[in-house]
Amino acid sequence: MNKFDIQIREDGDHAVIETAGYLNDSLGEQLSEKARELIKNGYTQLVINLEKTTLINSIGISILIEIIEALHEREGALNFCGLSDTQERTFRMMALAKYAGIFPDEESAIANL
């Protein structure tokens, strides 16, 4: 459950960050660092693929909000994909869906950036 990993795929004007494991403060900080690095390098169109992310706690969600804010400051965009029904419900409750897209798969998340 807690084996975590982050993969980055850069492609043209966008980048995909794929996380695996339990998205808590520890993995969240690593994710935030990767996202900040991508933004610094000019990637303001990001997809976060959470298909392999087993659980996301409220601190992880808070860190995702920070990434959304960083992208909005640069007029960028963030789409999520691969969420479970519970994760999507939680994201909508926490208002993430107002500022980031939620899509079933990576292909549609990229297409809608």
Binding site: S58, I61, I65, E69, M93, Y99
Partner: peptide, 24 residues
Amino acid sequence: RLLGSPGIHTDLRKRGRGLQIIKT
């Protein structure tokens, strides 16, 4: 957990709450 510096998305920031998740 209140996040970041005051900024554009106060409605996002004020919602980073564990109890809200539990109750929902």
